[in-house]
Nucleic acid binder design. Structure first.
Lengths: 122, 122
DNA sequence: ATGGTTGTACGACGGTTTTCGTACTACGGT
DNA sequence: ACCGTAGTACGAAAACCGTCGTACAACCAT
């Protein structure tokens, strides 16, 4: 059994959490963990990156205290630390999940409604 | 009068907002804007960085849609776009502000309670 | 007009992050 | 014992980010 370091619930730092969640790939992981069932293996995530990059992202999330990971055979199962996060930073995770969903819906709507229309300026 | 680009309220992107708020200096700015009065000049923020770095951070916040800025003479006044953010990503800003305050209190408590005590591991 | 205040532009530097590929380990099944 | 699957470690490359200093622009007061 390989050991995995996790910060205690009161050691979770806002900086680490926000940095972790600022990345779209990692937000995608978190979103899938939130909407799907618990304990999903890394392989279950269809990420647009290679295996080693994927390992990296999961590690960042774990070390930030966003997810908990444990081995089960060769598989490494991940769970959202929703309760710990809620205790430490109330409302933060739900707000980000809502925002992620909102933006996703937004992009899909834009995609179906006005195909070929571009934003002019930044 | 110099013009300043701001994203429209429905152009605010989650990625930009989270990236902007992932930086402690910028979170400090936002926190001061939230707790103090509106329309504070950059100079009113006692930031641990030089002027040019400060300019940079304000620009990042503005381009992310977190703050609104306008000139008044040589001064550049900043306001939190709390309403726009609330419309776009409900609960996000309040949660981050609460979290910022929570962590700040935490650090101060740690500082007064156990001076000289260090964290052993990461 | 001259000078002071407030902020910007630009280039540079150093550190971190994201990404990859390759080689490797751990475990389960047959 | 062997193979396949799941994931890690490590090193490298490229991009990005935060910081600074210097030089500059805009504006106000006198």
């Amino acid at each position: 059994m390989r050991a995995l370091a996790h910060p205690a619930h009161d050691e979770i730092e806002l900086d680490a959490v926000l940095s972790a969640l600022a990345d779209p790939v990692r937000r995608r992981i978190v979103h899938q963990l939130a909407t799907g069932h618990d304990d999903q293996a890394c392989i279950a995530f269809d990420l647009p990156v290679t295996k080693s990059t994927s390992t990296h992202h999961f590690r960042v999330l774990r070390e930030a205290g966003v997810i908990r990971q444990h081995y089960q055979g060769t598989a490494k199962l991940s769970t959202l630390r929703a309760d710990d996060l809620e205790t430490r930073f109330p409302g933060l995770l739900p707000a980000i999940l809502t925002a992620t969903a909102a933006e996703k819906a937004d992009l899909e709507k834009a995609g179906t409604e006005k195909i070929g229309t571009e934003k002019a300026d930044l």
